[in-house]
Design a protein around this nucleic acid. Structure first.
Lengths: 202, 202
DNA sequence: ACGTTAGTGACACCGGGTGCCACTGGCAAG
DNA sequence: CTTGCCAGTGGCACCCGGTGTCACTAACGT
């Protein structure tokens, strides 16, 4: 059959890096021709798997874009859990956001491609709401424990929702400028918000 | 045929209140059995129109839940445009949010049903992101003009995203307590955020 | 009486997503 | 080695949301 990368897989066990390959193919196709203009059939074919198998890997066409987002959320949760209790709550959340998004340089192009799709393609933007809800729950839980409140109370939810909004906005600003790095935008957004938007007190 | 509310419509001109009837039927069915468990066929049938016509009224099954949201956004925009320039920017945005959501008591049950669906049903929550983006653009434009910035700059976007996050959180808190009114939650959320979350400075 | 026009419903079609089943290969037990 | 189990796969049929097309019908102006 194939010498290096088999296009047709053996029907029995899957190749080890199938997921990674599918995600690369999906990202490239979506970036090239737009999320809505690429059918899941095409992605599956290009990755050398059947449509049925594609939907066993990813519950949704959109999910193929997100990579290991559950791991991302888990990392954030771990960072929050390991926070110094002496640090103010809001600062802890912002710091955790910054740290969890501190990717090595080699992964930055991939991250850009991913986020450009997620924030730029309407269908993916809509889907993102569902994914970000997981983040919000983690943050709200943390704030709740730190302030002896319930995760469903207004303040924990509010902190979760607004820090996430700030992070998303920072991402947009980052994407808008190809030469910039993410961290400064995150810091600026969090600083602005944490100080009650001092730059427009008039 | 029917004496009061014809189930089958004349093929020529539509009944005047068709849209209103469809929306009521849709809201009730979705609330009763869940958004995903009701097909657009059922909604159309129950409203006495064909599926095709349903999708001419609403681009999406989800859109049937939103009523005249474009009008809502337009009202918000008008409120912002009519704001006293002496008032601080952030305060103007918050005040506009409060005022545009000041519904008469008679419409409150409807609003609750609507928002409970939108924030509670995953598919509708995802869809909401697309609708809320319209709001964000309006708010960002206003902040941009007030601060002599571009609507795509970080601060205008940030203000839009975070005030909207605060408003959404207030809605959630309102929905969680059947006996409460919306305005106090909005005020609390905006006050918390505008002051940089003073309740967790530790 | 006539053509125009807006709105309607029926039909066929596409694409995302799912349930079901048959198959294939690896692996452990005999 | 053979047998049987098992996870992962692909094919198929199906459901549902959404769209393009077309024929029809009622209201309206001329």
């Amino acid at each position: 059959m194939a010498l290096v990368t088999p296009t047709t897989l053996p029907a029995g066990l899957p190749a080890e890096r199938t997921r990674a390959r599918v995600e690369r193919v999906a990202l490239d196709l979506f970036t090239l021709r737009g999320f809505e203009n690429v059918t899941s059939d095409e992605v599956a074919d290009s990755a050398g798997i059947s449509r049925r198998t594609f939907f066993r890997y990813y519950a949704t066409k959109a999910d193929a874009v997100w990579g290991d987002f559950a791991g991302h959320v888990a990392r954030l949760e771990a960072l929050l859990a390991a926070t110094d209790p002496a640090q103010p709550v809001l600062a802890s959340v912002c710091a955790a956001y910054v740290e969890v998004n501190d990717y090595p340089d080699t992964e930055l192009p991939l991250l850009r491609e991913r986020m450009r799709l997620i924030l730029g393609e309407p269908a993916l933007l809509a889907h993102s709401q569902l994914r970000f809800t997981e983040v919000d729950r983690v943050v709200a839980r943390y704030v709740a424990t730190r302030t002896a409140a319930s995760p469903t109370d207004l303040v924990p939810r509010l902190v979760a929702a607004s820090t996430r909004a700030a992070a998303t906005t920072a991402f947009e600003a980052w994407l808008a400028d190809d030469r910039s790095t993410l961290a400064p935008h995150l810091h600026r957004a969090f600083a602005e918000m944490g100080a009650g938007f001092p730059s427009l007190r008039r």
